[in-house]
Design a protein around this nucleic acid. Structure first.
Lengths: 141, 141
DNA sequence: CGGCATCCAAAAAGATACTG
DNA sequence: CAGTATCTTTTTGGATGCCG
């Protein structure tokens, strides 16, 4: 991809990440495709869809019940985006009434694992963040 | 409000991807505070701010140059949110012209590490995702 | 330089109704 | 059941101007 654009990405760059590849498509570049992928998986509902499907295959309505507050529209949209990116697998059985199952592709399982780690981190640091917020708010009251 | 205090929270278990029905402060619950934290951290610019600051302390303008496409307004907004959450540390030197440095708190370094992992994953899977998209688009053309 | 306030355009999200 | 279509509301983001 774009390793040759304006934003210094070459080897003579300042301190890069120790040990991590410095020669990839760059999320910092505004036009890099990795930004788009990242956006999809960490989107508001994308995170929760991936975390849900990590538990196993789910139907549309089950997914909707699992994820508190998601609208039918946003769930459908999120699933389509992730399906297109090869992260979620959609299997529709041609019966009436419709029966559609969603699961993770191998690629999706990788993403979901990372996303889950993040979600879990957030869950376990709620108290710390809340006390930080109190301190912050008090300091400017 | 939140079930964050007192309830089964201190389970810092990393590998429980199955059968997690009603066990912890739950990102799946619409009203759980962890959702908010997660949103801040994985927000469009939040991800990139954290990844940038992982490389070291940066000034406002340096951050802006580092992150392609971010506007002044959104950068300021993102930094404030993360500062309030105790993730980013802001240090303003009372000189003219102003000199403000941003860095990560210990808490922020944790978040940034997870976020970086995700960003790196996205970067390294651009080709796979792009070919998945082609296949998807072709199948419905 | 590092903001903040304001205004405006655009995109995302929600509610609702309808369909195969 | 699993969506789509349409409409409205909300949120987001960019541009601009001002200020310490």
């Amino acid at each position: 991809m774009k390793v040759s654009n304006g934003v210094s990405n070459s080897a003579t760059d300042e301190t890069r990440h120790e040990g991590l590849d410095a020669l990839l498509p760059d999320v910092f570049a505004a036009d890099c495709a990795s930004r788009g992928i990242l956006e999809h998986v960490v989107s508001r509902w994308g995170v929760l869809v991936l975390a849900s499907l990590l538990e196993g295959t789910l139907r549309f309505s089950a997914l909707r019940r699992r994820i508190g507050g998601v609208s039918e529209k946003m769930l459908a949209q999120t699933l389509q985006t992730l399906e297109r990116d090869g992260i979620v697998l959609r299997e529709a059985k041609p019966v009436i009434p419709p029966h559609v199952e969603y699961s993770l592709t191998p690629l999706g399982r990788q993403a979901a694992h990372h996303v889950w780690t993040l979600a879990h981190w957030a869950e376990s640091h709620v108290p710390q963040v809340e006390s930080a917020r109190e301190a912050y708010d008090e300091k400017r009251a």
